[in-house]
Amino acid sequence: MTRANNAGWFRRLSRAALALVSALLVTAVAACGPSASLPSDQKAGSAPSTGSGSTGDVRSMDEIKRSGRLRVAVFSDKAPFGYVDKDGTYQGYDVYFANRLAKDLGVKAEFTPVDPAARVDVLASNKVDVTMANFTVTEERAAKVDFAKPYMKVFLGVVSPESAPITDVSQLKGKTLIIAKGTTAEPFFEKEHPEVKLLKYDQYADAYSALSDHRGDAMSTDNTEVLAWAKANKGFTVGITKLGDEATIAPAVRRGNKPLLDYINQEVDKLGKEGFFHKDYEETLRPVYGDAANPDDIVIEGGQG
């Protein structure tokens, strides 16, 4: 074969090889297409999106009963409402209620720790059946989850060092306020007091560590929480005990999960008749607050303030 024939044969072979590779690439891309087009909040291999940011179907009441567990999102670092004790057991006001909800359903509560900003997401992704992480009811959240009847009421509070107490919001101008992301303190200060510099943390434990280390001038979250923390940490005081409007705290289920929502609402009514939430207060909150707080300022029985 001549050198010219060799060159022509090589060019024809190259074109054939390129065509084969291109065909293989097209086939591969087509095969991968559905996974590549998944929404950014859904990983490959997970259930298809329902179109509302949700992943998969909620578990039916029968499925929950058959599984023997009610999956509940709670805080692991927000004493005395949701925390893990020295023995690794979940404790707190929210946990006490969650255990009773599960017991009356004939199952056990299985707890999943959650950061404040992820309380909606764990429901949307079907990782839990109900969120009971000191979840304050707001219009924005109610557009994403279904809240049951409330079992607690709350304001915002501000805790600061005793050596430089913050007793009025005006004192925060030009200072640094520590908050946890995803809490009601975040939108409140961003909207009502944009002059206040916010230092944000994902977890409560990190936020309180920052306050203890004086990385900020004060911290704001639920008044019930800051009162408890200041009582347990010398050198700090709650100079503002009621900030903003009174709000309520309630369990939340994924949007549209009416069977579980109905069950929780029925439980809230039933437990209210037996004074359950005041008993919950006595078991979990009075050891922290002592006589410094009035149970009726915190507890909601039977969904009624």
Rank of each mutant, 00 (worst) to 15 (best):
N6F: 11
W9C: 00
S14Y: 14
S14N: 12
A17L: 15
A17I: 15
L20P: 00
L20G: 11
A28M: 13
A28T: 14
A31C: 12
C32I: 10
A36F: 11
L38W: 08
A44P: 02
G45L: 10
A47P: 02
S49T: 15
T50L: 12
S54N: 14
T55N: 07
G56I: 14
G56S: 14
R59F: 07
S60K: 03
E63H: 02
K65R: 15
R66W: 05
R69S: 14
A73N: 01
F75W: 03
S76N: 12
K78R: 15
P80L: 01
D85A: 09
K86D: 13
G88L: 06
G88K: 07
Y96F: 13
L105I: 03
L105D: 05
G106T: 09
A109V: 00
A109N: 11
D121C: 01
V122I: 11
L123V: 08
N126H: 11
V130I: 11
F135L: 09
F135E: 01
V137E: 10
R141A: 09
D146H: 14
K149I: 02
V154Y: 05
F155H: 14
G157M: 09
S163P: 14
S163K: 15
A164N: 15
S170F: 02
Q171D: 11
L172F: 01
K173A: 15
K175S: 08
T176C: 02
T176S: 08
I179S: 06
K181H: 03
K181I: 08
E186T: 09
P187H: 15
P187Y: 15
P187A: 14
F189T: 00
E190W: 00
K191S: 13
H193C: 04
V196W: 08
K197F: 02
L198R: 05
L199D: 13
L199W: 04
K200Y: 10
K200H: 11
A205G: 04
D206F: 00
S212C: 06
S212T: 12
R215Y: 07
G216D: 06
D217M: 06
D217P: 10
M219T: 08
D222N: 14
T224Q: 01
E225H: 02
W229A: 08
A230E: 07
K231S: 15
A232I: 05
N233I: 03
G235Q: 04
I240S: 02
I240F: 04
K242L: 03
K242W: 08
D245T: 05
N257V: 06
P259D: 11
D262F: 09
D262H: 03
I264H: 04
E267M: 10
D269I: 10
L271T: 01
L271Q: 03
G272P: 10
E274S: 14
E274D: 12
E274N: 01
D280T: 13
D280V: 10
T284C: 07
R286H: 03
P287N: 07
V288N: 04
V288L: 01
A292Y: 04
A293D: 09
Q304T: 13
